[in-house]
Design a protein around this nucleic acid. Structure first.
Length: 271
DNA sequence: AGCGGAACCTGTCGGC
DNA sequence: TGCCGACAGGTTCCGC
């Protein structure tokens, strides 16, 4: 489900309520979602205070009073929900943290792709340690991007999904960013000139900032904490709009497939 | 090293 | 109504 704006929205909301709360206990209702030893996870999380919540790429990092961190990835359909401790379990509840104040924090996930993992050192986490630039990193420039892409012949849209390059973009925003930048998603990454890469970076920051302002995009599964919807779906210009008219040039929006994933573009605006 | 395709799992929707 | 395939905001693994 979620990309940077969605994850950041969730992190912001968790950060408002979780720090200082104690995890009284933890139940794992679906084994595979917790990486490593279930018993050890439950035991080491028990009776720890939550210190802070942060985003790294699409990961959510929950730091505990023990300095250990719970690394959460929502993948496609993961979400967090607060419920009264006594409320009945829902079908898709996968991991439940019992908090103080008779509340529980539920990690709910229809498809069970999501993951939770307890680590002592963030650098030891495989995915996290390999993340590329944060979109707002000052080190992320057109020049650096050009250098990193010099041996990559994959379509630029596919490159934008590579978390080792830029961390946080996903299928919706990759399409929206390339539309905003006026760049065709099929262009091989290493063929883009400095100036085009600069406009991709500019569009990326613009789109992400706007999406964050509207708390992300709720099309099917993504919800904020407690099932609230984001609103950026009302501002999408190409994603999910196959055969509709482009708002700029009235061409028909196209849907193509790249690397087994849908890409949306305007053939009139994106060259 | 770079790249494409299958796999992970569940639900929904459209066509016949 | 029922079955069947296609598709879904992501990542990882495997083989060329």
């Amino acid at each position: 489900m979620p990309e940077l704006p969605e994850i950041q929205t969730i992190v912001n909301e968790l950060e408002r309520v979780l720090p200082g709360k104690r995890i009284k206990s933890c139940r794992v209702l679906r084994d595979k979602m917790v990486q490593g030893d279930q018993h050890r996870f439950r035991q080491q999380v028990k009776n720890k205070n939550i210190r802070k919540i942060e985003r790294r790429g699409k990961y959510i990092v929950i730091t505990l009073s023990s300095s250990q961190m719970i690394i959460v990835h929502l993948r496609m359909t993961g979400k967090f929900i607060f419920q009264p401790l006594k409320s009945p379990a829902q079908k898709h509840d996968r991991v439940v943290f019992e908090l103080q104040n008779q509340q529980k924090l539920i990690f709910s996930d229809v498809r069970c792709f999501g993951t939770l993992e307890l680590v002592n050192d963030i650098n030891k986490h495989n995915g996290l340690s390999q993340l590329g630039f944060d979109p707002w990193s000052r080190q992320l420039t057109a020049g650096i991007l050009q250098k990193k892409l010099e041996n990559r012949q994959i379509p630029i849209k596919t490159a934008l999904l590579d978390q080792k390059l830029i961390a946080g973009l996903g299928n919706i925003y990759a399409s929206e960013i390339l539309f905003d930048a006026g760049i065709h998603p099929d262009i091989p990454a290493n063929q883009l000139k400095h100036e085009k890469l600069a406009s991709i970076i500019r569009s990326m920051r613009k789109i992400l900032r706007l999406a964050l302002k509207y708390n992300g995009t709720s099309i099917s599964d993504y919800r904020r904490i407690d099932e609230k919807q984001g609103m950026f779906q009302n501002f999408l210009k190409v994603y999910g709009k196959a055969d509709q008219k482009c708002i700029n040039c009235s061409s028909s929006i196209m849907k193509i497939t790249q690397n087994q994933r849908s890409t949306f573009l305007c053939p009139g605006c994106q060259k």
